[in-house]
Write a protein that binds this DNA or RNA. Structure first.
Length: 291
DNA sequence: GCGGCAT
């Protein structure tokens, strides 16, 4: 039961009492107080996020490989137009986090529910804040700090640098609506605006951890490189177009990858009769770039 | 001085 759980304090009581505290931060949003504790135990590292109001306290436990996903999702909710946001599901290990935006007379809020097999569902609610979602933005900033700092702590007993294969770690799926989905929606949401960052946002390339997955395709005279990577803002897919000596890239946070895929599939579908019979698209694996 | 969700 506790085999896969990280930091849940499962089984016989400890409640993470022995866990090492790596980093603590607090954030006040309106009258709520949020505690962020980055902790570590022999099973791994996790972020405990607690919401405390006058009488209640509720906590969610985020596995460390989910911090970047939380960051991406908060960016999504901060950057999207109010009417364009959808609920999201984030599966991490054995638990699922549900992100839902709600509104009542107190204002807009983001409800984050953690559902796991052996535990009651727990929920925190983050107020959007008055203007420009500053409550969510402040929350996002804390996540960014923690995500960045987390990379500075090295597990002494770390056997592999990437304990997760990219395909297996995480599934991020759209729940409701998903912006653009296989159904015959006539109006694809311009989700790309918020999901695709320009390459200028990248830190120096030293910080880009290549995850060892690189592919290249050719189309006509162009080459396109696909590289998985991660930086202090999370995981991303970099797609680079290389012509001659010029390279330009888009950086696609993995939270947008599914929508990207569906969007490409859409255009493949509607142009099918025009590309049938075309050949010459080669896909191969290449060595990770050196820089 | 808040208080949402939902078991």
């Amino acid at each position: 039961m506790e085999g896969n759980s990280v930091g849940g304090g499962g089984g016989g009581g400890g409640g993470g009492a022995n866990d090492v505290e790596l980093l603590c931060k607090t954030l006040q949003v309106e009258h709520k107080l949020f505690y962020f504790d980055l902790k570590e135990n022999p099973r791994g590292r996790y972020l405990k996020i607690s919401e405390k109001t006058s009488a209640t306290r509720s906590t969610i436990i985020v596995p460390s490989n989910g911090i970047a996903w939380f960051l991406d999702l908060f960016n999504y909710y901060v950057n999207s137009e109010d009417q364009d946001v959808f609920s999201k599901e984030l599966q991490l290990d054995t638990k699922v986090f549900y992100f839902d935006v709600g509104e009542n007379r107190r204002g807009r809020f983001l409800k984050i529910s953690e559902a796991s097999v052996s535990r009651n569902r727990s929920t925190i609610i983050v107020p959007a804040g008055n203007a420009r979602d500053e409550g969510w933005a402040a929350f996002r900033n804390i996540l960014a700090e923690i995500n960045e700092a987390s990379g500075l702590f090295v597990l002494p007993n770390q056997h592999q640098q990437n304990s997760e294969a990219p395909e297996r770690i995480i599934g991020l799926s759209d729940d409701v609506g998903a912006g653009f989905i296989s159904s015959n929606s006539s109006q694809p949401a311009p989700a790309t605006d918020s999901n695709i960052d320009r390459s200028s946002d990248l830190p120096p390339s030293d910080d880009i951890g290549n995850m060892g997955v690189s592919k290249v395709i050719r189309a006509d005279q162009k080459k396109f490189f696909f590289d998985l990577g991660n930086n202090n803002r999370g995981h991303f897919l970099r797609i680079s177009e290389v012509t001659g000596s010029d390279r330009s890239s888009i950086i696609l946070p993995l939270s947008g990858l599914k929508q990207f895929h569906e969007m490409v599939g859409h255009f493949v579908e509607i142009t099918k009769d025009r590309i049938e019979g075309m050949t010459g698209v080669n896909v191969r694996t290449v060595d990770p770039p050196q820089r």
